[in-house]
Design a protein around this nucleic acid. Structure first.
Length: 285
DNA sequence: AAAGCACGCAACCGCCTACTC
DNA sequence: GGAGTAGGCGGTTGCGTGCTT
């Protein structure tokens, strides 16, 4: 039996998200939290497949995302983590708060790869490129890291390859608030797919931290109801209940959320602008 | 000024895994 | 135990934009 498509292709919009769609998605998730992605588009009034909504939220709309280029420090983090974890972007991203796997993957492919090659380092093996050294294929996710390590006789950390990286790391350490560096050494090389115990540690990030709700708790935003923050007492109560206390960023709920809500409820505001500037500014740690 | 090209990034696709029944 | 489903992940694509010729 063939696999059922994640969504009905007919009537499902594809391509770039409009400001209106973003607004609907943010509004729905802020009010209801994340429920099942499959039914979210219907409940939120979006003509998108659930997968697309999840991706949009995870990679672009999530309030705790950092925008902009990776800092030099973050870049070194990615290099080091990649040397240990390979192309497991989500794992790498979990060690960089506010960064998504997609963002890191893109940055790796567009910037870091080139940079490493320029430095004479094979981005795949993290070892110096020699003329007759064939590039070793990137291990697949089915190939355990431990097994890959056995294939090499030298340490694979880039710090062994490029000593100055550690100097840069030290230099940039002061620029970062979160103690990311200390976690590098804590990364277990064994596959931790079955070990979610450290999912919610102070330094790792998890996209599941938006409160989950039961289907009966879902509130479908009404198009007809004028939704001002003062007029919707029901929403206020529920929003109060759904405070994202477990989120990793330092969110000043009283001030920032009402500010954010104002944006959402004000039709005159261009959401693209909100997201790229005010939204991220409001929620910046 | 315009055509061609390269680059960056958002979004999609298909596969995999975990979970439920 | 197997089928069906949902969510997650990594690879890839395609479009917008800036640069070069």
């Amino acid at each position: 039996m063939g696999r059922k498509p994640c969504c009905d292709k007919d009537g499902v919009k594809k391509g770039p998200w409009s400001a209106e769609e973003d607004k609907k998605l943010i509004n729905f998730i802020l009010i209801n939290g994340q429920c099942c992605w499959r039914s979210l588009p219907r409940l939120a009034g979006l003509l998108r497949c659930g997968k697309s909504c999840r991706l949009r939220w995870t990679n672009y709309l999530r309030p705790d995302l950092k925008r902009g280029l990776l800092s030099e420090y973050e870049e070194k983090m990615v290099i080091d983590l990649h040397s240990q974890l390979g192309n497991r972007w989500s794992k790498i991203a979990s060690h960089l708060p506010g960064r998504t796997d997609n963002e890191i993957k893109n940055h790796w492919n567009t910037h870091i790869k080139k940079k490493l090659k320029k430095m004479g380092i094979d981005p795949v093996t993290h070892q110096p490129i020699t003329v007759d050294q064939p590039s070793i294929e990137q291990p697949t996710k089915n190939q355990p890291i431990i097994q890959q390590e056995k294939q090499t006789t030298m340490p694979i950390s880039p710090a062994h390859v490029v000593p100055e990286i550690m100097d840069i790391l030290d230099h940039n350490k002061e620029l970062v608030e979160t103690p990311i560096l200390s976690t590098i050494t804590e990364i277990k090389l064994e596959d931790d797919d079955h070990n979610n115990n450290n999912k919610n540690t102070a330094t790792s990030f998890c996209t599941d931290e938006v409160p989950l709700i039961q289907p009966h708790e879902i509130i479908i935003p009404s198009e007809s109801t004028p939704s001002t923050s003062s007029s919707s007492s029901t929403s206020s109560i529920i929003l109060e209940d759904l405070r994202f206390d477990n989120w990793q960023y330092d969110f000043n709920w009283e001030d920032d959320f009402s500010k954010t809500l104002d944006y959402l409820l004000n039709d005159d505001i261009d959401m693209n602008n909100v997201i790229s500037q005010d939204w991220s500014k409001v929620l910046e740690v």
